[in-house]
């Protein structure tokens, strides 16, 4: 295929896209709406994963030490924990700090503070707060601590065992939400692809007689097909650009008004930060679906 033919195929596609005004307009309109669904899915999964990450972040396990445990012993445990691959952060709270925090928490509660004074000494033990990279990993972290017999002497209690049911439930809820989200995204993506295919098939159906005439006039299958594929790609590209433009104010508005409600997640910032990814996803799906759908839609009418 030489340059002249290529130029004719692309030029022919662009021209017929412009001229079949109402059909092209309808195609672009449907594709835009469909790509918006794809875009909202991107936003939705971003919001979902942000929210889940925020919830996961709230889960931790506290290890309370007996009051007689010395600081070097505790720090040794901390360092051991920190080397575990499952552990994200370990925070050490000393006995004094625990007391200070306790006082602060009960600043309005004179009775408790009085009782504390009467005790004369600090009744609180030091503690370590452990955050795992994944909420499912707490069990193995806790097991690591209980396996070491030397720890048993200094560890008073680990609140994992009280929180176990809550953590487990939360973990499975997060997993379920994630996979439900994935299924929803997959379903809508499939629906979008189907809608785009159907729309383009309809647009090309209106040109079926034309395709037959082109065959009879002696045009090769390639020469007939290419302009339709080009027109499909143009429709996809245009729809993706329209979607990206329309999303700008939408993302801004949602970012402004719903950020607090979404736990600090700002959609507008997300849109700007992830623009290359969103751009590629929308333009890519528009162009690929438009082109591939046209390719298959024409095939049906080439059998003349």
């Amino acid at each position: 295929m030489n340059f002249t033919m290529l130029k004719r195929m692309i030029g022919g596609g662009a021209k017929s896209f412009m001229r079949s005004g109402s059909v092209s307009f309808a195609t672009v309109l449907v594709m835009t709406v469909t790509l918006m669904i794809v875009g909202f899915l991107i936003f939705l999964s971003a919001i979902l994963s942000y929210t889940l990450a925020a919830i996961e972040d709230k889960v931790d396990v506290n290890i309370y030490f007996v009051t007689t445990a010395s600081e070097p012993e505790i720090l040794l445990v901390r360092d051991q924990l920190a080397t575990l691959p499952e552990v994200a952060v370990v925070t050490y709270t000393s006995r004094d700090k625990a007391l200070a925090e306790f006082r602060e928490r009960h600043a309005d509660d004179q009775l408790t503070l009085q009782a504390l004074e009467e005790l004369g000494e600090n009744p609180l033990g030091a503690s370590l707060a452990v955050k795992a990279k994944d909420p499912g990993q707490y069990e193995s972290i806790v097991r690591f601590l209980s396996d070491d017999i030397s720890n048993e002497v200094i560890i008073d209690r680990i609140n994992y065992f009280q929180n176990k049911t809550v953590i487990d439930r939360l973990t499975s809820a997060i997993r379920a939400t994630e996979s439900a989200g994935a299924v929803i995204v997959a379903l809508f993506a499939l629906a979008s692809a189907t809608i785009i295919f159907a729309t383009i098939r309809l647009a090309i159906y209106t040109a079926r007689d034309e395709i037959a005439v082109m065959r009879l006039v002696g045009a090769s299958n390639m020469y007939i097909r290419a302009p339709f594929v080009v027109a499909g790609i143009i429709a996809g590209l245009l729809s993706a650009v329209i979607t990206l433009v329309v999303f700008y104010p939408i993302a801004w508005y949602i970012g402004e008004s719903a950020s607090g409600w979404l736990g600090g997640f700002n959609l507008f910032t997300y849109y700007l930060d992830h623009f290359p990814m969103i751009f590629l996803t929308l333009v890519g799906s528009g162009v690929v679906l438009g082109g591939v759908a046209s390719w298959f839609a024409v095939r049906k009418y080439l059998k003349v």
């Binding site: 002249t4 033919m5 004719r8 001229r19 034309e210 037959a212 082109m214 006039v217 002696g218 020469y223």
Partner: peptide
Amino acid sequence: FRLIPNKTAYENIAFAMEAAG
């Protein structure tokens, strides 16, 4: 007649030549 509706008279005739390369 079977002309291509969104091409002008000129383009309909030119199409046969274009398609033939």
